[in-house]
Amino acid sequence: MDSHSIAAQTAEPAHLEHEHPAFLRHHFENVAQQREAATFGMWLFLLTEIMFFGGLFCAYLIFRNWYYPAFVAGSHTLHIWAGTLNTTLLIISSFTMAMAVHAAEVRHRGPLLRWMVLTIVLGCGFLCVKAYEWHDEWVNHHVPGLNFSIQEFTHTNPAYPGDKPLAPDMAEKTQIYYSLYFVMTGMHALHMIIGVSLLAILLIRARGGAFTNGHIAPVENFGLYWHFVDIVWIFLFPLLYLISRHQ
């Protein structure tokens, strides 16, 4: 067979005789190719996620330009401490996740499990604070469509005595702010819930040693997802909580 014909070489003997790691799927050439494809696929998925949140950010941008006073008034009703706490929790959880990936890379099962548990705990902590905040919005009649009242915005906010009360027309527009607040934090929380659930599944598999034998792609790619969700929050926090706080 001359060198310019297709398939001049015989099938890889190692592949046929199963002398490869158990986690290498048969349609891949080798472990490096499998890992490259998986990581690449994850990045592509994150691209679609960016476009999804991009759509929401775009709506935010337009409405904030139109109804800036309503956005300021709405933003001033949020608890800045809760947002700050959640930002801190998420940044720490990104660190613990990065450590989990590192533990998988150096094949230390004990630390891998501990870092994963810590990440789950921090993620759940975030969700608890978020649930508290949403409950607070409900109590204060800030949920559009269900129990919204503009009363608070047509009068002076005691926490921000510098803010002038809004005209009823503009006060109505705070509903747009809250709609955006709920859809953006809601979609983010949905991603967090999915993330925590996935991490729990990975944790169970990690206990059996599935990721400390060189097969780190699932942990690594989940890490990418987790950091992405974290970054979304890094944008949400100033956009929703920190509008004109210097007044």
Binding site: M51, F53, A59, Q175, I176, S179
Partner: peptide, 21 residues
Amino acid sequence: ITPLTAAQVMLLLDRNLGAHF
């Protein structure tokens, strides 16, 4: 595709939960 998904999520919220996008 996902910008449309974002819009459809907002439409669903408009229709079912009283958002005003």
